[in-house]
Simulated assay, not measured.
Amino acid sequence: METKDFRRRPALPFGMAALDSRLADKGLRLDALHEIAAASNDMAEDCAATLFMAGIAARAWGPILWVVRRRDLFAPGLSQVGLDHKRLIYAEARDDAELLAVMEEGLRHRGLGAVIGEVKRADMTASRRLQLAAEGGRTIALLMRRHAREGADPLAAPSAAVTRWRVACAPSTPLPVAGVGRARWQVALVRQKGGESFETQVEACDATGRCALPADVADRKATAGGAARRAA
C-alpha cells in the first residue's frame, strides 16, 4: 500500500466544538490508544458505547479491524452510524490475551484506519504495548472495556490510553408528535493526557458517524454564555 504522498492528520475531530475545543489535540489522536466503557453493564448502555466507538471508526480513513470475544456485532446497527460492513475485518479471539495480541499486530501493520477490541481485563502493560504499537502510525486504536462484574468500574484500572470515555444513555430527543426521537448519550471524558475531564450530552451518531449537540443543550449553553458576558 502506497502511503508516501499521504499527509497524515494528527487527530480525528468529532466535528463538534463542544467536544473538539475541550480536547488537548482538538480531536482524537490518530496514533494513540483511546478507551471507551459503558456507564453500566445494562445492554442499552453497552450498545450506546459500541455505537459511539463505531462512529469514531466510521470517520477513520480505511479498513477497520474489529477483534471480538463473542459474535454479537450487529452489522445493520453499525451501518446506521456510518460503518459499512465492507470496510470491516473481523477477528475472533479465544481470550483477552489473544485479543490484545491481535490488536497489537493490527496496529503494527500500518495499513488499517482503526483497530478495535473489546476486553474485560487489560493491565497497564497491555495498554502500554498498544499505545507503543500505535505511535508513529496513522491507525487509531479503540479499546472497549467491558464490565467484568456488576458494580465494578472498567476504567478504574490504570492505563496508558490517551483518552478514556464513559458513555451512558440519556432521554431521546423530544418529538412534537408521539414517537421516539433521535437517541442521546451522556458522554464523559474521564481522563485525557494534557487536558481536563468533562461531560456533555450529545445526539447519537448519524449515518456519517457524527454526533450532534442537542438543540436544547446548545440553547442552554448559548444562554449561559450570554449571561456570563453580560455579567462581565
Rank of each mutant, 00 (worst) to 15 (best):
R87Q: 09
A39P: 03
A218H: 11
D20N: 02
A114S: 11
R182A: 14
D25Q: 12
E2D: 14
W66A: 14
F14R: 05
I36P: 00
V162L: 13
R191N: 03
D96N: 15
A93K: 08
A101N: 07
P13F: 11
L78S: 02
S172E: 11
A18P: 05
A227Q: 14
F74V: 14
T163Y: 01
M103A: 10
G113Q: 06
R22I: 02
A228C: 09
R229Y: 13
G113E: 05
D96A: 10
P63M: 11
L130Y: 03
P171R: 01
E98W: 04
G209F: 05
A224W: 14
Q192Y: 06
P214T: 04
R145P: 04
C47E: 02
R164Y: 08
G181K: 00
A152R: 04
G55V: 07
A222W: 13
A178P: 01
G209L: 04
D72F: 08
S40T: 15
R164S: 13
R230L: 15
A114T: 06
S159I: 04
A160Q: 04
A39N: 02
S79D: 11
A204S: 15
R7E: 12
L73Q: 11
G181Q: 02
G179H: 01
V67Y: 05
F74A: 10
R22C: 05
D5L: 11
S197V: 04
